[in-house]
Design a protein around this nucleic acid. Structure first.
Length: 851
DNA sequence: GCGGACTGCTTACCT
DNA sequence: ACAGGTAAGCAGTCCGCG
């Protein structure tokens, strides 16, 4: 076998851990991760013991073996010669499973093998390819092990006389009391589930000892990112910041460098790069958790390749390469770049507070710290050292801010999803939910269906999407009432889609179930029906998580009777649940998801529309004016207190969903565009939704004008202030106009910044940012997905900002952009204040300025 | 040969 | 590799116009 192949196989299923073996008796420890040791042919667990702050490796002692499932009988399978003689094949065992799709018990055969690769590795090898159909054969072995042992990563275990023992965690009395109150008249299965989740969410997350690491590499003349596969350039600096307060820089000496100092840090000078790398490896072996920012693709990969190039032996290198990820032999490697790149994390856990996935952007948005500026071609070694240390510092602090929020979030997500810390921080929400679903199937003896099984019975949708190419009709958006509205209350449904899944018993096995008597139980707005005979698995899981978030953890996170620390922890719990819940509907409409079930997603959205239309009707009956609504929210104009309460009560009774007061606005400005408005709160804070002025890519000069516009709007307290505001806006517009006309600007202020959504060669058309990118590429600058292209509009078309000059700027074009942006807000004022409409060919802005 | 209507592509946003 | 709905701008095509 060639080395490369060997490494892949080794990596995929078999990591050789080199941690301390767990002693016969290990005090309470947290299960962080699991793997398969190919040499020992056993599953192993990584346990973090909080008092020694070390990782211990515990090997399976139950003789658990890899397997997959066939629906054929053992007798039939025994006729398959290839199977019987396949290396690693062991036994055939008939077992009973529940087939949820057909609601019946069936006999299947467990095909057991001595090692995971025998079931199936990369490519076409393995038992699963020798039989016509197999089930549960694509599940990672260590994940199978977690399912079968009923393990929950992130939870406490202990080793007693060599045996792994779960450490029971009892809920605090007051929490128990609150829980029994909130579950009220739910069925026992639901109550039990709530208690189980609460134990798992409530258990404190211990402090985990950890260190960040960042490397810098000697630059070549060209300012090109060094290639980690080749690792041709020497590593000149390695920095690390650890939870015990150490800040270290390993620096490769220049000619006469003997010592170096950085305040607050230890700088260690190395004259031989190999010694430097050895020290870095010691560090990687030492810590239970190693943090990087893009270590999967760069730092750790480079370290490994560079060490190989310098002649290190395999045993000296603590880093294992995967195809995409990089692991450690002792501890757990968390690549924060991957974690923050996760859209669900970005949007739901951090409310889109960072927009770009660079260390600089994430850190400056979340912890208010930036990378140091550095020009690699001219900088001194000490400058590189400082730069490197700063990167390590902010990488570390991304896990410590707000009382270890990110670390706790990761551990909680690991518990909920039943995934290892390595996996949960690297994979998307669909994997999290898949893993959780598989766990639930296995523990109740359900066969995990293949995707085709579900699709064959439940692949069809019945509605038509508004957007071409989409699979079914989605949310409803009510036309906004254009104008400026004072005293607006916004109500929204608490977790509308999860509520729909809970209340209508939606799950892949309950939607379009096989029972004729359930066919009358129609989902409104669809021809689909849902089961009434048994509780759907998805409904149970998502429903219980929903109730915990809405009824317990969200209130607790705001409960002023609790300490700040307690509230902060409940806020993390609440956020973790939010991330999972918000994705729980979408995954069933995603073709890549193993439980893909179009009518389930379609039904969920349909119930959402039903809730919205019913609520609009009910509001009308109560005499409330609804001026806008989007998916799960409605905007009420000058509602009376008792009207609001009546509507909320109506929703609880008729829909079974909590309708909450989300916001109160002093006033809201609507144009006639959907998903576009400005709302000003009583305290003067301004919410901007959808307006061009807040979009990331628009030129700073326009953005700045927009920001000033919002300041003017914030000062409007009553209808009487509107005239004055209009005057201020007029002055503002004139000022920016003048600046543009007189070319009193810097080039940077005019740059559009648009992200490349795909590789440059794969565009079918030639949009402006792509044009600019291609011009940059012609200059030898390499660009790829996720890169942001800065360009300006000149007389001769678009140009990359760095290739343009001020003289070329097409000022008229920028004035058009400016007008278009202001129009979105001004239009609303015009309409509401029934002012003279300007001459037909004039824009709103022009007529506005003339007055 | 030109300009407006139209479509499709792309990005960024909202829930 | 969570979903669909909306806005905006650009590029390219079609169609009518003596």
């Amino acid at each position: 076998m060639q080395a490369e192949e060997l490494e892949e196989a080794f990596e995929e299923e078999a990591i050789q851990p080199l941690g301390r073996p767990a002693p016969k008796d290990l005090p309470t420890s947290i299960l962080l991760s699991a793997g398969y040791d190919g040499r020992a042919e056993k599953a192993f667990l990584r346990l973090y013991e909080p008092s020694s702050q070390q990782i211990y490796i515990w090997y399976d002692d139950t003789g658990h073996l890899p397997y997959c499932i066939s629906k054929r009988s053992p007798e039939e399978l025994r006729r398959n010669e290839k199977l019987l003689s396949y290396p690693g094949f062991l036994t055939l065992e008939p077992v009973e499973r529940y087939d949820a799709l057909r609601d019946e018990k069936i006999m299947v055969t467990k095909i057991v093998a001595s090692n995971p690769l025998a079931i199936g590795g990369q490519g076409k090898s393995g038992i699963r390819n020798l039989i016509d159909e197999s089930w549960e054969s694509y599940i990672r072995y260590y994940q199978n092990y977690i399912y079968d042992m009923g393990l929950i990563p992130g939870m406490p275990y202990r080793v007693e006389n060599g045996k792994l023992v779960e450490v029971k965690y009892e809920l605090p009395g007051d929490v128990k009391k609150m829980l029994s109150l909130l579950v009220g008249d739910e069925e026992p299965e639901f109550k039990e589930r709530i208690l189980e989740w609460a134990r798992l969410l409530q258990h404190p997350v211990p402090h985990i000892r950890r260190a960040s690491i960042d490397i810098e590499v000697q630059m070549t003349q060209a300012d090109r990112v060094p290639n980690p596969e080749e690792a041709l350039q020497p590593i000149i600096a390695v920095s690390s910041v650890s939870s015990e307060g150490l800040r270290r820089v390993f620096l490769l000496a220049e000619e006469k460098m003997e010592e170096a100092k950085i305040e607050g840090a230890e700088v260690e000078i190395f004259h031989d790069e190999k010694d430097l790398i050895r020290e870095a490896f010691r560090l990687l072996d030492e810590y239970p958790v190693i943090l990087t920012f893009n270590g999967d693709d760069f730092d750790l990969r480079y370290l490994r390749r560079r060490a190989q190039r310098l002649g290190f032996s395999q045993d000296e290198i603590p880093i294992t390469l995967g195809r995409k990820f990089v692991y450690l032999r002792n501890g757990v490697h968390i690549d924060l770049y991957r974690f923050f790149l996760n859209r669900a994390i970005q949007v739901y856990a951090f409310s889109d507070r960072y927009r770009e996935n660079t260390l600089d952007d994430v850190a400056s948005s979340l912890i208010g710290k930036r990378k140091l500026q550095l020009d690699f071609s001219t900088s001194s070694r000490m400058e590189v050292a400082r730069y490197c240390l700063q990167d390590a510092l902010i990488t570390y602090e991304l896990t410590t801010f707000d009382d270890d929020l990110v670390m706790k979030l990761m551990v909680l997500l690991s518990r909920i999803s039943r995934m290892t810390l390595e996996d949960v921080t690297r994979q998307g929400v669909s994997r999290w939910i898949l893993t959780l679903m598989e766990y639930e199937h296995r523990r109740r003896g359900w066969l995990i269906p293949n995707k085709e099984d579900i699709l064959a019975l439940k692949g069809e949708t019945a509605t038509r999407a508004i957007i071409k190419g989409r699979k079914y009709l989605g949310a409803m958006v009510k036309e906004p009432k254009a104008g400026i509205h004072f005293d607006v209350t916004v109500l929204d449904f608490a977790s509308l889609y999860p509520s729909a899944i809970k209340n209508w018993n939606l799950s892949y096995e309950t939607i379009l179930c096989p029972h004729p008597e359930d066919r009358a139980n129609i989902i409104p707005g669809t021809p689909h029906w849902a089961c009434r005979r048994r509780r759907g698995l998805t409904s149970l899981i998502i429903g219980s998580l929903r109730d915990l978030r809405v009824k317990l953890y969200k209130p607790l996170s705001r409960d002023k009777r609790l300490s700040k620390e307690e509230r902060a922890f409940y806020d993390v719990v609440q956020r973790a649940l939010k991330v999972i819940l918000n994705a729980s509907y979408g995954v069933f409409g995603a073709e890549t998801f193993s439980f893909y079930c179009p009518p389930l997603a379609e039904s969920t959205a349909a119930i959402g529309r039903y809730a919205m239309t019913q609520t609009l009707e009910a509001s009308e009956k109560l005499g409330i004016e609804v001026i806008y609504g989007d998916t799960d929210s409605i905007f009420l104009e000058q509602p009376r207190e008792e009207q609001i309460l009546e509507l909320i009560e109506w929703s609880r009774r008729s829909l079974g969903v909590e309708l909450d007061i989300d916001k109160v606005y002093r006033y809201v400005v609507f144009s006639r565009r959907k998903k576009n408005y400005v709302g000003v709160s009583p305290d003067g804070s301004v919410d901007i939704k959808g307006l061009t002025g807040k979009k990331r890519h628009i030129p700073p000069i326009i953005k700045e004008a927009f920001l000033q516009l919002t300041r003017i709007l914030a000062n409007i307290k009553s209808p009487d202030d509107v005239e004055e505001a209009k005057k201020a806006i007029r002055e503002l517009v004139e000022k920016v106009y003048k600046r543009l006309r007189n070319r009193e600007f810097e080039l940077e202020e005019l740059a559009f910044r648009v992200m490349l959504g795909r590789s440059l060669s794969s565009y079918e058309t030639n949009p402006q940012h792509v044009k600019a990118a291609k011009m940059l590429q012609a200059q030898g600058i390499s660009l790829g997905v996720g890169d942001i292209i800065s360009y300006v509009v000149t007389q001769g078309g678009v140009k990359p900002m760095r290739l343009a000059s001020k003289r070329d700027i097409d000022v008229e074009k920028y004035i058009e952009y400016l007008e278009s942006m202001f129009e979105q807000v001004l239009e609303a004022f015009e309409i509401d204040l029934d002012q003279i409409i300007g001459r037909p060919r004039m824009t709103t802005l022009q007529s506005f300025l003339q007055r």
